[in-house]
């Protein structure tokens, strides 16, 4: 999820560097106001960033596990690998998030143009809408991750529909 906290802080630091070299009081005030808003935005999101990423990662992994059996072979194997390897690694949630979102992008591009594909795209879009609402980096007052609507239930996926 970019910018990372470090990248965001570097940006704020650049703004403050500019204050030091700006002669106009008016311009300095505008810069300081920008920096203050950025810091408030960052401070408001930093504590819930980790829980948000864990929620997003777990929801994506569940969703894509459900979709995997319907995917063409190389992508199905990749999905299985990414999902199981990540679950076992229990590592960096940020890196895991990018791997899962990259996989989701590949799945979106590979889904067939049929009813199952449409339903899978709707399931993915449902999760992405919930993600946009809960993402602390995009909102001053984000919907808290634990309040976000759950992503598609297993019974809503093409796999389970097909089995019923």
């Amino acid at each position: 999820m970019r910018p990372t906290i470090e990248e965001h802080l570097r940006g704020i630091s650049r703004t403050l560097d500019e204050v030091a070299t700006t002669r106009s009081i008016e311009a300095s005030a505008a810069l300081l106001s920008d920096a203050q808003k950025q810091l408030q935005r960052l401070a408001g999101s930093v504590s819930i960033r980790g829980p948000f990423l864990r929620w997003d990662n777990d929801a994506m992994a569940t969703l894509m596990s459900d979709l995997a059996p319907r995917l063409p072979d190389p992508l199905r194997q990749l999905a299985a690998h990414v999902i199981t390897a990540d679950a076992a690694a229990n590592g960096d949630e940020h890196a895991r998030n990018e791997r899962l979102r990259s996989l989701m992008t590949s799945i979106v591009e590979a889904l067939p143009d049929d009813d199952h594909g449409d339903q899978a795209r709707r399931s993915i879009a449902d999760h992405l809408r919930a993600r946009a609402a809960a993402n602390p980096a995009l909102h001053k007052h984000p919907q808290r991750w634990w309040d976000a609507p759950t992503t598609a239930e297993p019974t809503d996926t093409p796999t389970d529909k097909a089995e019923t």
């Binding site: 990018e98 992008t105 799945i107």
Partner: peptide
């Protein structure tokens, strides 16, 4: 892009 955007992949499709 510096990261993946499945939202934009859906739109591009």
């Amino acid at each position: 892009r510096l990261e993946s955007y499945p939202e934009l992949a859906l739109a591009a499709r």
